[in-house]
Design a protein around this nucleic acid. Sequence first.
DNA 1: GGCTCTTTGCAACGAACAGTTGCAATCACG
DNA 2: CGTGATTGCAACTGTTCGTTGCAAAGAGCC
Lengths: 203, 203
Amino acid sequence: MARTTPPRRRDTGRPRGQHVTDAVLEATLAELATAGLEGTRIERIAERAQVHKTTVYRRWPTREALIAAALEGLAVDTMANAPDTGSLRGDLIGLLRPVATFLGRAEGRAVARAALAAPAEPHVAELAARSLEGPAATAIEALVARARARGEWRGGAPVDLVLPTLVGALLHRTLLEHADTGAAWLEDVVDLVVSGVAPREHA
Amino acid sequence: MARTTPPRRRDTGRPRGQHVTDAVLEATLAELATAGLEGTRIERIAERAQVHKTTVYRRWPTREALIAAALEGLAVDTMANAPDTGSLRGDLIGLLRPVATFLGRAEGRAVARAALAAPAEPHVAELAARSLEGPAATAIEALVARARARGEWRGGAPVDLVLPTLVGALLHRTLLEHADTGAAWLEDVVDLVVSGVAPREHA
DNA sequence: GGCTCTTTGCAACGAACAGTTGCAATCACG
DNA sequence: CGTGATTGCAACTGTTCGTTGCAAAGAGCC
């Protein structure tokens, strides 16, 4: 069989301005943060980015694709590398502090909402799974291994409940209660979980 | 001051069919469950309910109002009355089991998503706060009081973290991980929190 | 500079959907 | 049976998504 349509090498002509891409993605996040997922209009994004509507459509096929692309640039480096602080409590706080900060910003909350609204936005759903759950899971594993070595972890305590519990609490607090997650609050939640997984110090 | 516009008593004429209201609200939930918050079209709702579009608009002023009304009929009796089972563990499971079941259905998840997408939908946000947080908070209070009396509750353990933690874990599990919350899973989460708030049994 | 092929701006357009309005038919209730 | 409402229907406005054709401009290469 012959190659079907060798994708037409096109190295000539005017290249696309990186400047445009950046401006549009940034404008998308801003729009998303103020207008919400449903309220985001790409015509307003174009206006904000000082760019014409058609230019936006020529780079991202649909509204959803644009939003997904914009979120991609944000969510990645949030839970990437958690520090080794020498205690389970410190490690968990170190892991969750960036998440709390992220959710403290309107753009961050918009991202979280978009991720939770997933079924309507498959791209976003996949993205959320990849960039949030992935790194977080590996971080948790390492962190628990260290805690085990220090004797801070009860044998039967389930590792895979730590993340849902803590991140879930953060989501509940920020998105449902609309309250902020200060340092004290975060420490309280972490303490709850830490003592939940600690070995019983029986007589 | 005189009464401004005594709202025009109108007891004559053909009354509105309760049947129509029911059908439309039910269709709205079904549509919401399959198409998501953004994808819900009131023309499709009307079609599903065997009713004309204008009839829908004559009863609910906007799409958002209709959705809020439909959710209202659902979310109320979920966390209403938690049983007194004689143990903190049992009480918490009794409280959360209905929530887990609720989130197990597509309509329930749609409701949760709508509540989390709140800022775009003020009615829905207010509704969620009222019908979810309200009853749950009172239930938790009573439940903790009983646990305290039984000595299952450590003095310093923060009461107001129990709900965010547990409900948050449920949300994380169902809406982000897209996994189901079986009985075993729920018990594990509750156990984590129960041992988190339990008094230290030191030597 | 000049050429080429592209991106960008612009205006106009079609389709889908929210929400409205006027009219005719229907129907519950007194 | 008559009254005054609800309901169905068709047509309409306005907004937004997404597309298309055309003209202008610009980046890289000779």
